[in-house]
Write a protein that binds this DNA or RNA. Structure first.
Length: 273
DNA sequence: ACTATGCCCTGGGTGC
DNA sequence: TGCACCCAGGGCATAG
Protein backbone atom coordinates (compact mmCIF):
# COMPACT_ATOMS: atom_id res chain seq x y z
CA UNK A 1 0.00 0.00 0.00
CA UNK A 2 1.80 3.12 -1.18
CA UNK A 3 2.48 5.67 1.54
CA UNK A 4 4.84 8.65 1.22
CA UNK A 5 8.12 6.73 0.61
CA UNK A 6 6.55 4.48 -1.99
CA UNK A 7 4.92 7.36 -3.84
CA UNK A 8 8.21 9.29 -3.63
CA UNK A 9 10.06 6.32 -5.16
CA UNK A 10 7.52 6.15 -8.00
CA UNK A 11 7.78 9.91 -8.50
CA UNK A 12 11.59 9.83 -8.74
CA UNK A 13 11.57 6.93 -11.21
CA UNK A 14 8.74 8.40 -13.24
CA UNK A 15 9.96 11.97 -13.54
CA UNK A 16 12.40 11.50 -16.43
CA UNK A 17 9.92 9.28 -18.29
CA UNK A 18 7.06 11.79 -18.36
CA UNK A 19 8.69 15.22 -18.18
CA UNK A 20 8.10 17.27 -21.35
CA UNK A 21 6.10 14.42 -22.90
CA UNK A 22 3.06 15.31 -24.98
CA UNK A 23 -0.10 13.31 -24.28
CA UNK A 24 -1.24 12.16 -27.73
CA UNK A 25 -4.16 9.99 -26.66
CA UNK A 26 -5.71 8.22 -23.70
CA UNK A 27 -7.12 4.69 -23.45
CA UNK A 28 -9.74 4.10 -20.79
CA UNK A 29 -10.36 0.46 -19.94
CA UNK A 30 -13.30 -1.43 -18.55
CA UNK A 31 -13.92 -1.10 -14.83
CA UNK A 32 -12.31 2.34 -14.57
CA UNK A 33 -15.51 4.25 -13.73
CA UNK A 34 -14.64 4.73 -10.08
CA UNK A 35 -11.20 6.06 -10.99
CA UNK A 36 -12.59 9.42 -12.05
CA UNK A 37 -13.58 11.72 -9.22
CA UNK A 38 -15.36 13.94 -11.71
CA UNK A 39 -17.50 11.52 -13.63
CA UNK A 40 -17.17 13.46 -16.90
CA UNK A 41 -14.59 11.49 -18.87
CA UNK A 42 -14.80 13.87 -21.84
CA UNK A 43 -13.75 16.75 -19.61
CA UNK A 44 -10.84 14.65 -18.47
CA UNK A 45 -9.70 13.78 -21.97
CA UNK A 46 -10.03 17.26 -23.41
CA UNK A 47 -8.12 18.72 -20.46
CA UNK A 48 -5.12 16.50 -21.20
CA UNK A 49 -4.91 15.38 -24.83
CA UNK A 50 -2.56 17.56 -26.89
CA UNK A 51 -0.88 19.01 -23.80
CA UNK A 52 2.55 18.41 -22.33
CA UNK A 53 3.53 17.29 -18.83
CA UNK A 54 5.70 20.12 -17.50
CA UNK A 55 6.80 18.47 -14.28
CA UNK A 56 5.94 15.91 -11.65
CA UNK A 57 5.68 16.45 -7.92
CA UNK A 58 4.30 14.76 -4.82
CA UNK A 59 2.30 15.98 -1.86
CA UNK A 60 1.65 13.36 0.80
CA UNK A 61 0.46 10.27 -1.02
CA UNK A 62 -0.67 12.23 -4.08
CA UNK A 63 1.24 12.39 -7.38
CA UNK A 64 0.81 15.74 -9.11
CA UNK A 65 1.41 16.13 -12.85
CA UNK A 66 1.66 19.79 -13.85
CA UNK A 67 0.20 20.15 -17.34
CA UNK A 68 1.26 22.79 -19.90
CA UNK A 69 -2.26 24.26 -19.97
CA UNK A 70 -1.91 25.19 -16.26
CA UNK A 71 -4.06 22.31 -15.08
CA UNK A 72 -3.00 19.60 -12.67
CA UNK A 73 -3.53 15.86 -12.98
CA UNK A 74 -3.63 14.39 -9.47
CA UNK A 75 -3.30 10.64 -8.92
CA UNK A 76 -3.80 8.69 -5.69
CA UNK A 77 -2.89 4.99 -5.75
CA UNK A 78 -4.69 4.11 -2.50
CA UNK A 79 -4.20 0.45 -1.62
CA UNK A 80 -3.35 -1.48 -4.75
CA UNK A 81 -2.72 1.08 -7.47
CA UNK A 82 0.50 0.93 -9.48
CA UNK A 83 2.05 2.72 -12.44
CA UNK A 84 4.23 1.42 -15.27
CA UNK A 85 5.87 2.76 -18.43
CA UNK A 86 5.70 0.55 -21.52
CA UNK A 87 5.85 0.82 -25.31
CA UNK A 88 2.51 2.13 -26.58
CA UNK A 89 1.81 -1.06 -28.51
CA UNK A 90 2.05 -3.28 -25.40
CA UNK A 91 -0.98 -5.46 -24.75
CA UNK A 92 -3.33 -4.41 -21.97
CA UNK A 93 -1.91 -5.31 -18.57
CA UNK A 94 -3.85 -7.09 -15.81
CA UNK A 95 -6.09 -4.65 -14.00
CA UNK A 96 -5.00 -1.82 -16.30
CA UNK A 97 -7.49 1.01 -15.93
CA UNK A 98 -6.07 3.88 -17.99
CA UNK A 99 -3.19 4.45 -20.39
CA UNK A 100 -1.64 7.78 -21.41
CA UNK A 101 0.04 7.52 -24.81
CA UNK A 102 2.99 9.89 -25.25
CA UNK A 103 4.66 11.34 -28.34
CA UNK A 104 7.68 9.03 -28.04
CA UNK A 105 5.74 5.77 -28.55
CA UNK A 106 5.80 5.04 -24.84
CA UNK A 107 2.82 5.03 -22.50
CA UNK A 108 2.12 5.46 -18.81
CA UNK A 109 -0.37 2.93 -17.44
CA UNK A 110 -2.28 2.92 -14.17
CA UNK A 111 -3.24 -0.49 -12.82
CA UNK A 112 -5.44 -1.17 -9.80
CA UNK A 113 -6.83 -4.44 -8.48
CA UNK A 114 -9.23 -3.02 -5.94
CA UNK A 115 -10.45 0.04 -7.83
CA UNK A 116 -9.75 2.44 -4.95
CA UNK A 117 -7.27 4.57 -6.89
CA UNK A 118 -8.43 8.00 -8.03
CA UNK A 119 -7.43 10.55 -10.66
CA UNK A 120 -8.66 14.09 -10.91
CA UNK A 121 -8.03 17.34 -12.77
CA UNK A 122 -7.54 20.60 -10.86
CA UNK A 123 -7.34 24.11 -12.26
CA UNK A 124 -5.30 25.23 -9.27
CA UNK A 125 -4.01 23.67 -6.05
CA UNK A 126 -5.47 26.14 -3.54
CA UNK A 127 -8.26 23.89 -2.28
CA UNK A 128 -6.06 20.83 -2.47
CA UNK A 129 -3.31 22.41 -0.38
CA UNK A 130 -5.84 23.57 2.21
CA UNK A 131 -7.28 20.11 2.60
CA UNK A 132 -3.90 18.34 2.88
CA UNK A 133 -1.37 19.42 5.49
CA UNK A 134 2.31 20.11 4.75
CA UNK A 135 4.19 17.13 3.38
CA UNK A 136 5.68 15.15 6.25
CA UNK A 137 9.26 15.38 4.96
CA UNK A 138 9.03 19.12 4.24
CA UNK A 139 10.36 21.90 6.50
CA UNK A 140 6.80 23.08 7.08
CA UNK A 141 6.13 19.84 8.93
CA UNK A 142 7.97 20.67 12.15
CA UNK A 143 7.41 20.42 15.91
CA UNK A 144 5.65 23.79 16.09
CA UNK A 145 3.17 22.78 13.40
CA UNK A 146 2.64 19.35 14.92
CA UNK A 147 2.06 20.85 18.36
CA UNK A 148 -0.53 23.26 16.97
CA UNK A 149 -2.44 20.32 15.52
CA UNK A 150 -2.20 18.07 18.58
CA UNK A 151 -2.91 20.53 21.36
CA UNK A 152 -6.69 20.16 21.14
CA UNK A 153 -6.81 16.70 19.65
CA UNK A 154 -8.80 14.37 21.90
CA UNK A 155 -8.17 11.20 19.92
CA UNK A 156 -5.13 8.92 20.00
CA UNK A 157 -1.83 10.04 18.48
CA UNK A 158 -2.13 7.17 15.98
CA UNK A 159 -5.45 8.55 14.77
CA UNK A 160 -3.92 12.03 14.50
CA UNK A 161 -0.96 10.79 12.47
CA UNK A 162 -3.28 9.11 9.97
CA UNK A 163 -5.11 12.42 9.46
CA UNK A 164 -3.72 13.81 6.19
CA UNK A 165 -4.34 17.38 7.30
CA UNK A 166 -1.78 16.70 10.06
CA UNK A 167 0.85 14.27 8.75
CA UNK A 168 0.43 14.21 4.97
CA UNK A 169 1.92 11.05 3.54
CA UNK A 170 2.00 9.04 6.77
CA UNK A 171 -0.09 5.87 6.58
CA UNK A 172 -0.68 2.89 8.79
CA UNK A 173 2.78 1.34 8.55
CA UNK A 174 4.86 4.50 9.11
CA UNK A 175 2.56 5.79 11.87
CA UNK A 176 3.39 2.65 13.89
CA UNK A 177 7.06 2.78 12.95
CA UNK A 178 7.36 6.45 13.93
CA UNK A 179 5.62 5.89 17.29
CA UNK A 180 7.97 2.99 18.06
CA UNK A 181 11.02 5.01 17.03
CA UNK A 182 9.94 7.86 19.30
CA UNK A 183 8.96 5.56 22.18
CA UNK A 184 5.38 6.81 22.19
CA UNK A 185 2.34 4.59 22.65
CA UNK A 186 0.07 4.90 19.61
CA UNK A 187 -2.98 4.81 21.92
CA UNK A 188 -1.78 7.87 23.86
CA UNK A 189 -4.16 10.82 23.71
CA UNK A 190 -2.62 13.29 21.27
CA UNK A 191 -3.09 16.38 23.47
CA UNK A 192 -1.17 14.71 26.32
CA UNK A 193 2.11 14.66 24.40
CA UNK A 194 4.63 17.09 25.90
CA UNK A 195 7.09 19.21 23.92
CA UNK A 196 9.86 16.67 24.23
CA UNK A 197 7.62 13.90 22.93
CA UNK A 198 6.41 16.04 20.02
CA UNK A 199 10.01 16.88 19.09
CA UNK A 200 10.93 13.21 19.17
CA UNK A 201 7.88 12.13 17.22
CA UNK A 202 8.44 14.75 14.52
CA UNK A 203 12.06 13.65 14.13
CA UNK A 204 11.04 9.98 14.10
CA UNK A 205 8.43 10.53 11.40
CA UNK A 206 11.05 12.13 9.17
CA UNK A 207 13.64 9.47 10.04
CA UNK A 208 11.44 6.50 9.18
CA UNK A 209 10.18 8.15 5.99
CA UNK A 210 13.67 9.11 4.77
CA UNK A 211 15.07 5.69 5.64
CA UNK A 212 12.32 3.99 3.72
CA UNK A 213 12.84 6.28 0.72
CA UNK A 214 16.50 5.24 0.78
CA UNK A 215 15.30 1.63 0.64
CA UNK A 216 12.84 2.32 -2.20
CA UNK A 217 9.81 1.81 0.06
CA UNK A 218 8.15 -1.02 1.93
CA UNK A 219 6.46 -3.93 0.16
CA UNK A 220 4.19 -5.77 2.60
CA UNK A 221 1.27 -6.70 0.38
CA UNK A 222 1.04 -5.01 -2.97
CA UNK A 223 3.44 -2.15 -3.51
CA UNK A 224 5.60 -2.41 -6.66
CA UNK A 225 7.72 0.23 -8.35
CA UNK A 226 7.56 1.27 -12.02
CA UNK A 227 9.33 -1.91 -13.10
CA UNK A 228 7.24 -4.20 -10.90
CA UNK A 229 9.99 -4.60 -8.29
CA UNK A 230 9.38 -4.63 -4.53
CA UNK A 231 10.96 -2.15 -2.15
CA UNK A 232 13.57 -3.21 0.41
CA UNK A 233 12.38 -1.49 3.57
CA UNK A 234 10.11 -4.34 4.76
CA UNK A 235 13.25 -6.03 6.14
CA UNK A 236 13.91 -2.94 8.30
CA UNK A 237 10.42 -2.61 9.75
CA UNK A 238 10.56 -2.59 13.56
CA UNK A 239 6.96 -3.17 14.68
CA UNK A 240 4.46 -3.27 11.82
CA UNK A 241 3.27 -6.86 11.29
CA UNK A 242 5.60 -8.20 14.00
CA UNK A 243 2.93 -9.33 16.49
CA UNK A 244 4.33 -11.68 19.19
CA UNK A 245 7.87 -11.15 17.91
CA UNK A 246 10.55 -9.59 20.08
CA UNK A 247 10.92 -5.82 20.25
CA UNK A 248 14.21 -4.91 18.58
CA UNK A 249 15.08 -2.63 21.52
CA UNK A 250 13.96 -4.47 24.64
CA UNK A 251 12.94 -8.01 23.52
CA UNK A 252 9.40 -7.59 24.90
CA UNK A 253 6.66 -9.14 22.74
CA UNK A 254 5.10 -6.82 20.17
CA UNK A 255 1.38 -6.28 20.77
CA UNK A 256 -1.27 -6.02 18.05
CA UNK A 257 -4.44 -4.04 18.56
CA UNK A 258 -6.84 -1.94 16.50
CA UNK A 259 -6.98 1.85 16.41
CA UNK A 260 -9.54 3.67 14.25
CA UNK A 261 -10.14 0.42 12.42
CA UNK A 262 -6.46 -0.10 11.57
CA UNK A 263 -4.08 -2.81 12.76
CA UNK A 264 -1.71 -1.21 15.22
CA UNK A 265 1.54 -2.67 16.55
CA UNK A 266 3.61 -1.48 19.48
CA UNK A 267 5.89 -2.57 22.31
CA UNK A 268 4.21 -2.35 25.71
CA UNK A 269 7.55 -1.83 27.47
CA UNK A 270 9.31 0.88 25.51
CA UNK A 271 6.06 2.54 24.38
CA UNK A 272 4.37 2.81 27.78
CA UNK A 273 1.11 4.69 28.13
C1' DA B 1 -16.65 21.59 15.53
C1' DC B 2 -14.84 17.34 16.39
C1' DT B 3 -14.50 12.35 16.39
C1' DA B 4 -15.84 7.58 15.36
C1' DT B 5 -17.60 4.20 12.23
C1' DG B 6 -18.81 1.90 7.93
C1' DC B 7 -18.12 1.49 3.19
C1' DC B 8 -15.84 0.75 -1.15
C1' DC B 9 -13.16 -3.50 -3.53
C1' DT B 10 -10.72 -8.04 -4.61
C1' DG B 11 -6.91 -11.43 -3.97
C1' DG B 12 -4.79 -14.21 -0.70
C1' DG B 13 -4.82 -16.78 3.37
C1' DT B 14 -7.05 -19.82 6.79
C1' DG B 15 -9.99 -23.24 8.75
C1' DC B 16 -13.28 -26.78 8.29
C1' DT C 1 -10.04 -30.21 -3.18
C1' DG C 2 -13.56 -26.97 -2.26
C1' DC C 3 -15.90 -23.56 -0.04
C1' DA C 4 -16.94 -19.86 3.17
C1' DC C 5 -15.21 -16.59 5.52
C1' DC C 6 -11.88 -12.89 7.03
C1' DC C 7 -8.28 -9.53 6.39
C1' DA C 8 -5.58 -5.74 4.24
C1' DG C 9 -6.50 0.15 4.85
C1' DG C 10 -6.95 5.44 2.39
C1' DG C 11 -10.22 8.61 2.12
C1' DC C 12 -14.83 9.86 2.10
C1' DA C 13 -19.82 10.02 3.69
C1' DT C 14 -22.50 9.76 7.45
C1' DA C 15 -23.75 9.49 12.28
C1' DG C 16 -23.30 10.82 16.88
Amino acid sequence: MPELPEVETIKRDLESKVKKRLIKSINIFEGSERLFIKKDINFFSTALIGNKIDCLSRHGKYLIFSISNKKYLIVHLRMTGSISINPSNSPMASYEKIRFNFDNNFSMSLMDIRKFATIDIYSNLVNFNQRIGPDSISHDFNPAFLKSKLVARKSSIKSALLDQSIAAGVGNIYADEACWDAGINPLQKAFLLNDDEINRLCASIKNVLFESINNRGTTINNYKDLLGNSGYHQTKVAVYGRVDKKCLRCSQKIIKTRVVGRSTFYCSKCQEL
